[in-house]
């Protein structure tokens, strides 16, 4: 029987590592991968709490998160391919088209 706080600490660790990847990395591909890691750490929390409270809704929400993540990755990689075709760069600080 795994204590609940172990899963939560694991989720926190993976979330902080993924957020570090999103904030600090320069390569857009690695930023997208870190985003996947963030969503996965949230999934760990959903399933851990669902297991702890013997409630199936945690797993249902995790399934929805996985579905939305798949859609998000497809669109993001489509945008990335279009971006590289127009402006051959992968560095996130070179993409300043919207003056951000």
């Amino acid at each position: 029987m795994v204590p609940l706080w172990w899963s939560i600490v694991l989720g926190v660790a993976l979330f902080v590592i993924g957020a570090g990847g999103v904030l600090l990395r320069r390569n857009i591909l690695v930023v997208l991968m870190s985003l996947e890691l963030l969503l996965n750490s949230v999934n760990i929390n959903f399933i851990a709490f669902g297991h702890h409270f013997a409630d199936s809704r945690g797993q249902v929400f995790a399934i929805f998160v996985i579905a939305i993540t798949a859609a998000e990755v497809a669109v993001a990689l489509g945008i990335l391919v279009a971006l590289v075709r127009n402006k051959s760069t992968l560095r996130s600080d070179d993409v300043t088209l919207m003056k951000g």
Binding site: R25, R26, V84, S88
Partner: peptide, 13 residues
């Protein structure tokens, strides 16, 4: 599909 070689040079912002 994309050329990742130029991105290898610098890791962080």
């Amino acid at each position: 599909m994309v050329d990742v070689r130029e991105a290898v040079l610098q890791r962080f912002l």
